[in-house]
Nucleic acid binder design. Sequence first.
DNA 1: GCTGCATGTCATCAG
DNA 2: GCCTGATGACATGCA
Length: 484
Amino acid sequence: MHQACVHIHLRLRCVSWAPYRGQPVGILLALRLGLERRCPVRPHECLILPTGGCKGTRLAPSRQDDSPGEMAQIFAATAGFGATLLEPPLGRAWPGKMPPCPPQQGRARAPLLSGPLGGEHGPPGDMDLAWQEILSIAELQGLDLPSESPYDPALYSLTHPLAPVGGYGPCPALGDAPGPSCGQPCPGYERPYMDAMLAPCARLGMGPLPAMDPSYGYTGMLISSAMDLPSKVLPGEAGALPELGLAPPPPCKAQEDLESDSGLSLNYSDADSGEPEGLELGQAQPDYAELYPVDYGLPYPGLQGVPPFTPPCPPLPLATPEKGRGTPRAELGGSRDERRALAMNIPIPTEKIINLPVEDFNELVSRHPLSEPQLALIRDIRRRGKNKVAAQNCRRRKLEGIAQLEHELERLDHERQRLLRDRHEADQALGTLRRQLAQLYRQVFQRLRDEAGEAYSPEHYSLQLAADGTVLLVPRGCKADGPD
DNA sequence: GCTGCATGTCATCAG
DNA sequence: GCCTGATGACATGCA
């Protein structure tokens, strides 16, 4: 086996010597045919500089009668580099004319190629880069290596269809706007609650803050709606319900927790928010109950002068309509906090309690002589009201975020599809280049000759790309270290 | 009766 | 320290 490691300067602008496995080798750069602008190539000037014995060998053409431009045509045809203007056929080997072995000696520049391939009018400069890339990819040794891609489309394929975007829209303005949705006039509601609170209880003859029967605890709030009126609380009037066209209330659920975190018990759930349930009097909350016992008179000005048991005009709705479970509640009149406020004779509309700035709120509260339970209820109403709006905003933002993410997901999926298409096209182009390169590789080898005029066997030699871009003809099994 | 959705509420944290 | 907004968790009503 020919052990000489040969650098091949197929470009032939220079022939240099470089150490390779301890021995100088010639450099042949002609493989970069036509890719060097500064130094056009003439394939017939290719040199082979065998080492070992440091016998310089100039590359000889495989045939003396190679027609002019044949190599260039071959290269162009195989590499797809377009038309070429390579000049005369490959020359024969010129033994004995090689420079001595010292490395880097005799970098004879031989700008022999004219024409677009190698000259100043050659192909775009990126051809050189493309060539290196091709060499590095194909490694000239495994030209037919299958494309091994780290990308596995299966890993990225969607396993489920994208969630449809849409079906979501910004929440309608909630909050601050709503006025009374009551179709019926509510003249008295605008009156200060204090009037009602301070008004004597006409029905029971009780004052504003009468002593309370514990069993009636916290039922005062229920008078805001005639539907809340419990027969148990008003035994004397229960019989009057039919006369008034009102059916007795349904069996009541236990009103469990009227606790608020401020010590007041308001935290009963919506299950109890159908105020009739709240008439379970055995679980009265002492805080409210003791101070504000049942007042079956006129709970708030809107009811003053209204016949007993006439359902009051629903109070001002909250900032947000209570969707879903709102209908029954709305029929009961207002939100729970509004009913609580009514029950506690809070003289400030809940709307103001909730929406006023803190300074105005404090000022407003200070203008009214409020008991501690009332103040606690007001604070709870304010906190709950604000938190309600905050929760609505939070959910709206969450939905908006979800919609945005879905949109982003859709966009990324489109991007992924596009990249897959690009990759497919690139793979196809790479395959074409590999085939062309393999053909070129074979043809170059067919024309390489040693000093004896013998062809180099691709089985024993290979072309490798050095770090500096030169192409080395090295024996199989040797790894090019580069000329340096 | 179960389920999903909407809503209210509370607790908690951060500004 | 208080107020407020944000948000997770939970409960509840409703279709």
